[in-house]
Amino acid sequence: MRDTVIPMDNPDPEKRGKIQKMIFPEDLPHTHPYYDFRGKPKGMKAVLEEHGLLHGLQKANGGKHQGECKFCKSSRETQERLVREAQAMAAGGEELEGALEDVLQVPTSNTCCM
């Protein structure tokens, strides 16, 4: 994991363009909520908090801060199916009908699967 920059389209203008560390610092104070994770990679919750997005996502998703909407779930399932089909073809099987179909869809939500 490497440091990144909070995007300029972040809803909180004060966070835009700021460097975001992806590893918790070693010198976190003992009272910090993530103290036990010093020197370890940050999880999705910490990243969303730092972006100022956690509260809004929880509100939009019934209290959950990450989930799997219908679009993302179907995309993941399709990707897994395509990998299985490609592995079968590489093992000498015939190309399955529709194996190379375009599976991209337009997502219907921008608050689901952060």
Rank of each mutant, 00 (worst) to 15 (best):
T4F: 00
T4D: 00
V5Q: 03
K15S: 00
K18V: 05
K18R: 13
Q20K: 02
K21R: 07
K21Q: 06
M22T: 07
I23M: 07
F24I: 03
P25Y: 06
E26C: 00
E26V: 00
D27M: 08
P29H: 06
P29N: 05
P33F: 00
Y35G: 11
R38N: 08
K42E: 03
G43V: 01
M44D: 08
K45S: 13
K45M: 14
E49F: 06
E50Y: 06
H51W: 12
G52K: 06
L54P: 00
H55Y: 10
H55C: 05
G56D: 15
A60S: 09
A60N: 07
G62R: 01
H65G: 06
G67N: 07
C69S: 05
C69P: 01
K70E: 14
R76I: 09
R76D: 08
R76Q: 10
T78H: 11
E80A: 14
R81V: 04
L82W: 01
L82H: 05
R84G: 10
E85R: 15
Q87I: 14
M89D: 04
A91T: 10
A91N: 12
G93V: 09
G93I: 09
L96S: 06
G98N: 06
A99I: 05
V103I: 09
L104E: 15
L104D: 15
V106D: 13
V106N: 13
V106Y: 13
C112D: 03
